[in-house]
Lab assay of single mutants.
Amino acid sequence: VTVHVDGVEYDFDNPEEALKFAKKVAEDKNGTYEVHGNQIRVT
């Protein structure tokens, strides 16, 4: 699973970890996250 944040890609073997990371980053920057299959984009 790849999490995209501001043009940087973070790869996770564990989808739950990826989702947790995306949620935290989105909260920290008052943004949102979208899941597209095995890609998660934080905006």
Rank of each mutant, 00 (worst) to 15 (best):
V1M: 14
V1N: 05
V1Y: 15
V1F: 15
V1C: 14
V1E: 01
V1I: 13
V1L: 08
V1D: 02
V1W: 15
V1S: 06
V1A: 10
T2W: 05
T2Y: 06
T2S: 09
T2Q: 07
T2M: 06
T2D: 01
T2I: 11
T2E: 03
T2R: 10
T2V: 12
T2F: 06
V3T: 01
V3N: 01
V3C: 03
V3W: 00
V3Q: 00
V3Y: 00
V3H: 00
V3K: 01
V3D: 01
V3P: 00
H4G: 03
H4L: 14
H4W: 15
H4P: 00
H4A: 08
H4K: 08
H4C: 15
H4R: 09
H4M: 13
H4S: 12
H4Q: 09
V5F: 10
V5P: 01
V5Y: 09
V5N: 03
V5W: 08
V5G: 01
V5H: 06
V5M: 06
V5R: 01
D6S: 06
D6Y: 06
D6G: 09
D6M: 09
D6A: 08
D6P: 01
D6N: 14
D6W: 06
G7K: 04
G7V: 02
G7L: 04
G7F: 05
G7I: 02
G7M: 05
G7T: 04
G7E: 06
G7A: 05
G7S: 06
V8F: 11
V8I: 13
V8W: 10
V8A: 09
V8Y: 11
V8R: 12
V8H: 11
V8S: 07
E9P: 10
E9N: 10
E9S: 14
E9V: 15
E9A: 14
E9K: 14
E9I: 14
E9C: 14
E9G: 10
E9F: 12
E9L: 13
E9M: 14
Y10Q: 02
Y10T: 03
Y10A: 02
Y10N: 02
Y10K: 03
Y10E: 02
Y10V: 05
D11I: 15
D11V: 15
D11R: 15
D11W: 15
D11K: 15
D11F: 15
D11P: 15
F12I: 01
F12M: 02
F12Y: 05
F12D: 00
F12V: 00
F12E: 00
D13N: 10
D13R: 08
D13M: 10
D13E: 12
D13C: 14
D13L: 10
N14S: 13
N14G: 08
N14P: 00
N14R: 07
N14F: 06
N14L: 07
N14I: 07
N14D: 15
N14M: 06
P15W: 15
P15H: 14
P15F: 15
P15A: 14
P15Q: 13
P15K: 13
P15S: 12
P15Y: 15
P15V: 15
P15N: 08
P15M: 15
E16Q: 08
E16F: 07
E16H: 07
E16N: 07
E16I: 08
E16G: 06
E16K: 08
E17G: 04
E17S: 09
E17I: 06
E17R: 04
E17L: 08
E17A: 09
E17Y: 05
E17T: 06
E17P: 03
E17D: 14
E17F: 05
E17W: 05
E17K: 05
A18E: 02
A18D: 02
A18W: 01
A18Y: 01
A18Q: 00
A18M: 00
L19W: 05
L19K: 04
L19V: 07
L19Y: 07
L19A: 03
L19H: 06
L19I: 11
L19G: 02
K20W: 06
K20T: 07
K20E: 14
K20P: 00
K20C: 14
K20M: 10
K20Y: 08
K20Q: 12
F21Q: 03
F21R: 03
F21S: 03
F21V: 04
F21P: 03
F21T: 03
F21A: 03
F21I: 03
F21G: 03
A22Q: 01
A22N: 01
A22D: 02
A22F: 00
A22T: 02
A22P: 02
A22E: 02
K23Q: 14
K23F: 04
K23H: 06
K23V: 09
K23D: 09
K23A: 11
K23C: 09
K24Q: 13
K24E: 12
K24S: 12
K24W: 07
K24H: 10
K24I: 09
K24N: 09
K24C: 13
K24L: 10
K24M: 12
K24T: 10
V25T: 09
V25S: 08
V25I: 14
V25P: 00
V25A: 12
V25M: 14
V25Q: 11
V25K: 07
V25F: 07
A26S: 09
A26P: 00
A26W: 03
A26C: 13
A26M: 05
A26Q: 03
A26F: 03
A26I: 06
A26H: 02
E27N: 12
E27L: 13
E27D: 11
E27R: 12
E27P: 01
E27I: 11
E27Q: 12
E27H: 13
D28P: 03
D28K: 10
D28A: 13
D28V: 10
D28C: 13
D28Q: 14
D28L: 12
D28E: 14
D28N: 10
D28W: 11
D28R: 10
K29G: 11
K29W: 15
K29N: 14
K29H: 15
K29Y: 15
K29D: 07
K29M: 15
K29C: 14
K29E: 09
N30C: 13
N30S: 07
N30E: 09
N30V: 04
N30P: 02
N30D: 10
N30F: 06
N30L: 08
N30G: 13
N30Q: 09
N30I: 04
G31S: 06
G31M: 12
G31A: 08
G31F: 07
G31P: 02
G31N: 03
G31K: 04
G31D: 04
G31E: 04
T32E: 09
T32V: 12
T32W: 14
T32N: 11
T32D: 08
T32I: 12
T32M: 11
T32R: 13
T32L: 09
T32Q: 12
T32S: 14
Y33G: 02
Y33W: 10
Y33H: 03
Y33Q: 02
Y33D: 01
Y33P: 02
Y33R: 01
Y33V: 15
Y33N: 02
Y33K: 02
E34R: 05
E34W: 07
E34N: 05
E34V: 11
E34D: 06
E34H: 10
E34K: 05
E34L: 07
E34Y: 09
E34G: 03
E34C: 14
V35G: 03
V35S: 05
V35A: 05
V35C: 12
V35I: 12
V35H: 07
V35P: 03
V35E: 05
V35Y: 07
V35T: 07
H36D: 13
H36Q: 13
H36L: 14
H36W: 09
H36A: 12
H36R: 11
H36V: 14
H36I: 15
G37D: 08
G37H: 06
G37R: 04
G37Y: 04
G37A: 07
G37F: 05
G37W: 03
G37C: 11
G37K: 05
N38I: 05
N38L: 06
N38P: 05
N38V: 05
N38W: 02
N38M: 06
N38E: 04
N38Q: 08
N38F: 03
Q39R: 09
Q39G: 05
Q39K: 10
Q39A: 10
Q39C: 14
Q39V: 15
Q39H: 13
Q39D: 10
Q39P: 01
Q39N: 11
Q39T: 13
Q39I: 14
Q39Y: 11
I40G: 01
I40C: 04
I40M: 04
I40A: 00
I40Y: 02
I40T: 01
I40Q: 01
I40P: 00
I40D: 01
I40N: 01
R41K: 13
R41H: 15
R41V: 15
R41A: 07
R41P: 02
R41M: 14
R41E: 08
R41Q: 11
R41C: 14
R41G: 04
R41Y: 15
R41W: 15
R41L: 14
V42Q: 01
V42L: 05
V42G: 01
V42S: 01
V42I: 12
V42D: 01
V42P: 01
T43A: 09
T43E: 10
T43L: 14
T43F: 13
T43S: 12
T43P: 04
T43V: 14
T43H: 13
T43G: 07
T43Y: 13
